[in-house]
């Protein structure tokens, strides 16, 4: 562990706290994945690690690398922006896919398609079959 010895104290202490906070948040999120009961509740758990947890670890990494290389390292901002944009997209897609599957199987615990939307779909289908 050579490079760690060169980290000054002003950077080491906040970095240590941030790294621990980030890792604990990610762990709590993963434990939530085990403890929560239904799929829709479990979807909430990973966001804990991907938003706050990731932000803490990336901040710590920025602090340590800035202290080691003297000039500020903004590299980590890329990962932060990328994760912030993509996690909602994946979780949203998963929630929609799950809702679709639950509706197709007729499970009771999910809200069903509203009546007017169903009619619209039927009309659309008719229009499509009429086109063919």
């Amino acid at each position: 562990m050579m490079p760690l010895e060169n980290v000054p104290a002003w950077a080491a202490v906040p970095a240590a706290i941030l790294v621990l906070a980030g890792a604990s948040l990610a762990l709590i999120g993963s434990v939530g994945l085990l403890r929560l009961r239904s799929f829709y509740e479990r979807v909430h758990a990973p966001t804990l690690g991907t938003s706050m947890g990731m932000a803490c670890v990336l901040l710590a990494s920025m602090i340590v690398f800035s202290a080691l290389q003297v000039r500020p390292v903004l590299h980590e901002l890329l990962i932060a922006v990328f994760m912030l944009v993509t996690t909602p997209v994946t979780l949203m897609l998963l929630a929609r896919a799950s809702l679709y599957r639950d509706r197709a199987e007729g499970n009771d615990e999910v809200p069903q398609v509203a009546a007017s939307q169903k009619e619209a779909e039927v009309v659309e289908e008719r229009a499509e079959s009429g086109m063919r």
Partner: peptide
Amino acid sequence: ACILTAAPGTAWVEFDSAKGTLL
């Protein structure tokens, strides 16, 4: 959608663009 899903505790499930209701 990004805001609501990124904040833990709320998840965007579906948006009906014809009626403008969000689930």
